[in-house]
Computed example of a mutant assay.
Amino acid sequence: MTTSHLDATRDSYDTVAEDYAVRVGQLFDQEPISRAMLAAFAEQVSGPVVDVGCGPGHVTAHLASLGLDVAGVDLSPKMVEIARRQYPDLRFSVGSMTALDFPDGELGGLVAWWSIFHLPPEVLPSVFAEFRRTLAPGGRLLIGFHVGDERLSPETAYGHPVTYDAYLLEPGRIAELLGQAGFEVTARLAMEGRKRPQSCLSARAV
């Protein structure tokens, strides 16, 4: 991912952060299947967990409520500010999933919950390799994403102008890339989304 793409994503989410936090938190409360996937993930994890692309921290907080030792990381300083304000007892930091600030093999689990949406497909192999680097053998990965094969370039989101691109992804291709990065996909879930199909993949670091 180029610096300009990271900058566009960061700046756009800084712009929409307050409205995004209200909207997404409400939607999460209406998604029992998503919460069930997170609960299954929590039962399988041993060790610290990171929620990458955590946004305003609602998924991080949910994972903490399931008993996990979890921290959130997000590219947007404004999102991290909101997360810290809403969940002052949890740990949040500014960072990029393209270069995670964790030692090799430190994590027991990693969640990327609809946060690979803005990654160009050509950088997914290096990002998945970064996920694998941070996970201990047997560590668990849970990814949620929008399904398709299309690049989106919206001009507005959540009532504000944005400059990021977004990408719809094919589950089979994501599973293939995870295998190449050193993961075994252990479960797949297809879901109907409000605007487009969605998919969740659960995987184990091998």
Rank of each mutant, 00 (worst) to 15 (best):
D7Y: 13
A8D: 12
S12F: 08
D14G: 10
D14R: 08
V16W: 06
A17N: 03
A17F: 04
D19E: 14
Y20N: 06
Y20T: 04
A21K: 02
A21T: 01
V24E: 12
G25E: 05
Q26E: 15
Q26R: 15
Q26F: 11
Q26T: 14
D29H: 14
P32C: 08
S34D: 15
R35L: 12
A36M: 13
L38E: 02
A39V: 08
A39I: 05
E43Q: 13
E43I: 06
Q44T: 11
V45D: 01
S46Y: 10
S46H: 13
V50Q: 02
D51F: 01
G53N: 05
G57C: 02
G57N: 01
H58F: 13
H62S: 12
A64R: 07
S65T: 11
L66H: 05
G67C: 05
L68C: 06
L68E: 03
V73L: 10
D74K: 00
L75F: 00
P77R: 04
M79D: 01
V80C: 03
R85Q: 14
Q86M: 13
Y87K: 07
Y87G: 05
P88H: 04
P88V: 08
D89R: 13
F92K: 00
S93M: 09
S96C: 12
D101Q: 05
P103N: 07
G109D: 06
V111N: 00
W114N: 14
W114E: 12
I116R: 02
H118A: 10
H118E: 09
P120S: 06
P121W: 03
E122A: 11
V127L: 02
A129G: 11
L135E: 00
L135R: 01
L135Y: 02
A136P: 09
L142A: 08
L142E: 01
G144F: 09
F145A: 01
H146V: 14
G148C: 07
D149Q: 15
E150R: 15
R151E: 15
E155R: 14
V162M: 09
T163M: 08
L169M: 12
G172K: 03
L178R: 04
A181K: 07
A181W: 02
G182R: 08
V185W: 00
R188V: 09
P197Y: 04
P197I: 07
P197W: 04
Q198R: 13
S199V: 03
C200Q: 12
A203H: 03
R204E: 11
A205E: 01
A205R: 03
